[in-house]
Design a binder for these strands. Structure first.
Length: 229
DNA sequence: ATACAGAGGTGTTCC
DNA sequence: TGGAACACCTCTGTA
């Protein structure tokens, strides 16, 4: 019996349709749109550093915040060239609706100082030097403020370099529970717990024949009604 | 009116 | 050494 960090929801709360057939038919319906989106992510990975940094900032903003609001905030910041040059004070007004915005404004500035040196971007170079997605994720978690396993994986996936990583957020956890991949949602995620659940997702993904990255967008679209990021 | 859940969590502290 | 507990301290939709 494995030790769990805690329980917020049990299977009983999600009693009802755990039928994988239903998931797979939903996939058939959305497969083309999902794979198109994944191709777009890979395309972003080939764009200039500034655009990759926009994606990184989006991921830094998303915790406990609405993805749409964060996307809008990043676009607004990019339009005024504040991602590469703005102070926290200048960035803050653009983070309306983003939770924990004070800390996140500092994370953006810290990230910028890491990857934009002497007026030169070094982000893409850094990202392309990693051997694989796992190594990249470890580095991001260890070296960046605001990057945990979830957001580091989210960033890598969004630039087309993390398709074998799981992005374990509450939407995904809810779906993993619903489909019997996990039997409880942990209240907190240690590295060990994150990797354990990620391995289960990988197993599930292989078993039903839906790639990890596709599964993430499928679950997420199940919850939000759209294929976003 | 007021309360409360939900939003793609992470950093720090304490033990 | 790793994991709880707490900090962060917003905004919206819903009842």
């Amino acid at each position: 019996v494995r030790k769990e960090a805690g329980v917020v929801t049990t299977l009983e709360d999600w009693r009802g349709n755990r039928d994988v057939d239903r998931l797979m038919s939903a996939y058939e319906g959305r497969k083309n749109a999902i794979q198109k989106r994944l191709r777009e992510f890979r395309e972003i990975g080939r764009r200039p550093d500034a655009e990759i940094f926009e994606e990184m900032c989006f991921c830094l903003l998303t915790p406990q915040s609405k993805a749409r609001v964060c996307d809008k905030a990043v676009r607004s910041l990019a339009a005024e060239d504040l991602l590469a040059n703005g102070s926290t004070e200048e960035i803050l007004p653009h983070l309306e609706g983003v939770r924990f915005r004070n800390g996140k404004a500092r994370w953006i500035v810290a990230a910028r100082e890491q990857f934009f040196k002497d007026g030169q971007w070094v982000l893409k170079k850094r990202v392309e030097e990693f051997q694989d997605a796992l190594e990249a994720r470890e580095w991001l978690v260890a070296n960046m403020l605001g990057m945990g396993y979830k957001e580091a994986g989210h960033f890598l996936r969004n630039i087309g370099k993390g398709e074998e990583l799981a992005i374990l957020d509450r939407h995904i956890m809810k779906n993993l529970l619903r489909h019997g991949v996990i039997d409880m949602v942990p209240t907190s995620l240690s590295k060990r717990e994150y990797l354990r659940i990620e391995a289960l997702v990988k197993e599930f993904s292989g078993r039903i024949g839906i790639p990890m990255a596709d599964l993430d967008l499928l679950f997420w679209s199940n919850e939000t009604g759209e294929i976003f990021k």
